[in-house]
């Protein structure tokens, strides 16, 4: 992910538990793609239609609490969401996300500044969010059609606000970039010609 492109924000609240990300009744569907149609449906029934590849989720406290199920981060990744930013994560979700190649970033500073429809660039090299000014959530749940014209409009020249976040260890970033732990290990194994270290 390059830091240059901004993403549309989808803003969610506190305590988004794994039963909200993927309700238990859909976990037996044969593929993650099919499960993804029901992502977040308990709080946002048409979420899967609303989301566009490249969006980012920004949420409050305790994102991903509850079960250790890996379908939760897999579905978010399947929907094309670039990363999840939250005030805090459940530790099981945090690990499962990184292990499945979904970038997750903790920040208490960003969530209060953005709404659904805000635009934020995630600069991983400098570890800063660049928040574009002048967004007021007009691309929210109620106004989801006919919004193509508004992207990045009207605010040229206004410098983005920079919000720093904690750096992510290099090895973990590599793992995320390669699609997760199993993919990473497969490559490392292949390079080591299958010799156990």
């Amino acid at each position: 992910m390059s830091g240059a492109d901004s993403s549309r924000v989808i803003r969610l609240g506190d305590n988004i538990d794994t039963d909200i990300v993927i309700p238990t009744q859909y976990m037996t569907l044969p593929s993650v793609r099919e499960m993804a149609r029901y992502a977040f449906s308990p709080i946002w029934p048409d979420f899967a239609e609303f989301v566009r590849p490249g969006d980012i989720i920004v949420a409050g406290r305790n994102f991903g609490s509850g079960s250790s199920r890996e379908q939760a981060p897999e579905i978010i990744k399947e929907l094309g969401i670039r990363c999840v930013v939250a005030v805090s994560f459940s530790r099981l979700f945090y690990r499962n996300a990184l292990n499945n190649g979904l970038l997750v970033i903790e920040s208490s500073a960003l969530p209060p500044l953005v709404d659904t429809g805000s635009r934020v660039a995630v600069d991983l090299d400098r570890c800063v969010f660049e928040v574009e000014d002048g967004q007021d959530g007009q691309d929210g749940q109620e106004g989801q059609e006919g919004q193509e014209g508004q992207e990045g409009a009207g605010q040229e020249g206004a410098p983005p606000r920079e919000i720093p976040f904690g750096s992510i260890p290099h090895e973990l970033m590599n793992m995320v970039a390669e699609g997760g732990l199993v993919a990473y290990w497969s490559r490392v194994n292949a390079e080591a010609s299958g010799i156990a270290s």
């Binding site: 250790s68 690990r95 499962n96 499945n100 732990l181 290990w185 156990a196």
Partner: peptide, 14 residues
């Protein structure tokens, strides 16, 4: 500590 399926597999293998 609890982990997900991927972490489990990695621990089982390594």
């Amino acid at each position: 500590a609890g982990v997900g399926s991927t972490d489990f597999v990695a621990a089982m293998v390594t």
